[in-house]
């Protein structure tokens, strides 16, 4: 059977098949509806947990922004919380100090400011790679945090910004006690952000990012403006992280300088590795599982909950190098093979 395939496959066949493969890569697959169905289902099945659900959605968005640079472009960073923090403080300062509390416009403001932060720091830092970059990104987040601490008259320091007043969504929907409206609001924003990221990943630009991840030397040799590509992707990721931070501040009406913590940068990386890097839905799986585990562990063992998270991460790195989604793929393939 296979042999006859080879003999009948003319050169045009091969070309058509190759073309079809590339052309279909970006098409939306049926399975891609699953995460969105789950997000919708949670709303109806756990109506009393939507406040927590909102935080999960925000974590997904934060992890998704990291996936764009870490998973696709191969930029390692331990300072991604810097942009989450800029987003959160944009909302905090606008609503508590400047008397503007309109949620949607604040998201835009947060995206722009975090994006500018990404553009400036990225332009300087993305000449470096590996450990150096890791340290420099970490330092950037610490610098921002310390600057916030220095001007605690504005930021409220580690006690948080008092008196944030977030207006009603579209002038109608309040952030109700159960957080229903904010769950829907966050889900919609996540969907929009996801569509943007998905487009970028399947664009020629996204392919170039993968090229940089796979072999930066060759990218230079084929004439790719590597630095520019990295800075653009970093800026976009920063803007998205900023939106996530803004949603966090809006939904909780509360922010402290803790958002800039190293913990926060490390956590989002752990989420992504847990789910699987460079696979778009890794952020969804990783952030959700991390948040649920953290919630359950902290209830079950209030003092040792981090041990549980650590254990899960060790198991992932040992037995599921490509993250949980990678493991899932491998298992599915194993069963498909053993069937045939």
């Amino acid at each position: 059977m296979a042999a006859s395939d080879v003999t009948t496959a003319g050169p045009d066949d091969r070309r058509a098949r190759a073309r079809a493969f590339i052309e279909r890569r970006h098409r939306i697959r049926l399975g891609e509806i699953v995460p969105w169905l789950l997000i919708a289902a949670v709303f109806f099945i756990f109506p009393d947990r939507t406040t927590f659900g909102t935080q999960v959605l925000i974590a997904i968005m934060f992890a998704l922004s990291l996936d764009l640079i870490l998973g696709y472009a191969g930029i390692v960073t331990l300072g991604h919380a810097a942009f989450f923090g800029i987003g959160a403080y944009t909302v905090a300062i606008l609503s508590a100090r400047l008397g503007w509390g309109e949620p949607i416009s604040m998201l835009f403001a947060a995206a722009v400011l975090a994006g500018i932060g990404g553009l400036i720091s990225g332009w300087f830092l993305l000449r470096y790679r590996g450990l150096t970059l890791l340290m420099l990104t970490l330092a950037t987040a610490v610098l921002l945090q310390e600057f916030g601490n220095y001007r605690s008259d504005i930021t409220g320091g580690y006690d948080g910004v008092p008196g944030m007043e977030i207006w009603k969504l579209l002038g109608v929907f309040e952030n109700d006690l159960w957080g229903h409206n904010y769950y829907i609001y966050t889900a919609i924003v996540l969907f929009v952000v996801f569509i943007v990221v998905r487009h970028i990943i399947y664009s020629p630009f996204g392919q170039a990012l993968v090229g940089i991840r796979e072999n930066v030397r060759r990218m230079h040799a084929i004439g790719s403006p590597v630095h520019r590509r990295l800075v653009i992707s970093y800026t976009i990721a920063a803007a998205i992280a900023g939106i996530a931070g803004a949603l966090f501040a809006e939904s909780t009406a509360y922010t402290t300088l803790g958002v800039f913590d190293f913990d926060n940068s490390a956590k989002v990386m752990v989420m992504l590795i847990l789910g699987g890097t460079g696979r778009l839905y890794g952020a969804f799986a990783g952030a959700t599982i991390y948040m649920i585990l953290e919630d359950e562990f902290s209830k079950a063992f209030p003092e040792y909950w981090q041990f549980g998270i650590g254990l899960v991460l060790v198991l992932t790195v040992l037995f599921a190098r490509r993250g949980l989604l990678g493991l899932f793929e491998d298992v599915a393939q194993y069963f498909r093979r053993s069937k045939s």
Partner: peptide, 27 residues
């Protein structure tokens, strides 16, 4: 980590400037 064909597409994309496009699918 990517297909042979995509390796070549990448070189062409960088040559023609197609890789500056963030929105249109590569396919």
């Amino acid at each position: 980590g990517i297909s042979v064909l995509e390796n070549i597409c990448l070189a062409i994309g960088e040559r023609t400037g197609a890789c500056n496009n963030l929105w249109r699918p590569a396919g």
